[in-house]
């Protein structure tokens, strides 16, 4: 991101759109979109899962309710590296490793978005998110976080300085708080023995309904990408950058 690396850590990039509906959503919208993208995304799969919602009740009681989450359709490219997900007033375009380039990814997103808008006729965006998930594999049984990250969990001196599983997240407000960068750093299953694997998740969100118009979305995405790029470079030290091998 920004700088070009020979071994970039991006395991997934995605762009998510939630819409203010212009008409009630139904599954035929997913079907019509599939018809228009099936040359590029021929493999279809239905995603149904259980979800938990927390519903406040009288007397400050919160009642968890388990229910089937509305189905989402997933359309994969033949190599299963990119996919489009469509659900009720939701569209995402995901790209797994290897990540192409921002220009190519953005072109794909805008193409799919254009088709969705044509078909679904939404009123506007309720939420937009651009997200880059990086998996950083660092050789060694254990590592000193500060050697690799500028964003990490400082542990008070009085406590043992060794920790195992961790997950830290911080939200940084942008543009009068209606946009946010959510930075998350946590460990994950290591790819191979003798390696520490860390996930650095950079998620830029606009969550103000109809704040960004369809015409402004290209510009919004550029801005979001620049912020993510900058955040990525600031969160990691040169030791990590060396692992990725910067290209001349």
């Amino acid at each position: 991101m920004g700088k070009k690396y020979k071994n970039p850590p991006i395991v997934e990039a995605l762009c998510e759109f939630q819409f203010v509906p212009g008409q009630p959503w139904d599954i035929t919208i997913a079907g019509m979109l599939y018809e228009r993208i099936k040359d590029e995304f021929p493999i279809k799969q239905q995603q149904v899962g259980l979800g938990v919602t927390l519903q406040p009740r009288e007397g400050r009681v919160i009642e968890p309710k388990i229910e089937f989450v509305s189905s989402r359709m997933q359309f994969f490219s033949n190599d299963k590296i990119s996919l489009v997900q469509v659900g009720p007033d939701l569209l995402t375009v995901n790209h797994l490793k290897p990540y192409p380039t921002w220009e190519k990814f953005k072109t794909l997103i805008l193409k799919i978005l254009g088709k969705y808008i044509d078909i679904g006729s939404p009123k506007g965006f309720r939420r937009i998110g651009l997200r880059y998930i990086n998996k950083i594999n660092i050789p060694g049984e254990s590592i000193k976080m500060e050697d690799y990250f500028n964003f990490y969990l400082p542990i008070p001196e009085e406590l043992p300085q060794i920790h195992s599983a961790f997950n830290i997240s911080v939200e940084i407000p942008y543009k009068d708080d209606y946009e946010r960068l959510v930075l998350t750093l946590g460990n994950t299953m290591s790819e191979k023995p003798g390696t520490v694997s860390i996930i650095l998740d950079l998620y830029y969100i606009m969550a103000m309904p109809e704040k960004v118009s369809f015409e402004q979305v290209d510009e919004w995405m550029e801005g979001a990408h620049t912020i993510i790029e900058k955040a990525f470079e600031s969160c990691i030290t040169n030791n990590v950058k060396n692992l990725f091998e910067e290209e001349e």
């Binding site: 395991v11 997934e12 995605l14 998510e16 899962g49 979800g51 938990v52 919602t53 927390l54 519903q55 406040p56 400050r60 919160i62 229910e67 989450v69 509305s70 989402r72 996919l83 997900q85 659900g87 939701l90 995402t92 995901n94 797994l96 997200r131 998930i133 998996k135 994950t188 299953m189 998740d201």
Partner: peptide
């Protein structure tokens, strides 16, 4: 907290990242 719950938590939380969904399943 209550206001936030009413406003936002009624939405179902769906993992839209294919990679993170896989990790969660594992």
């Amino acid at each position: 907290w209550r206001k936030l719950l009413e406003k936002n938590l009624m939405e179902q939380s769906v993992e839209i990242s294919f990679f993170l969904e896989f990790q969660r399943n594992i």
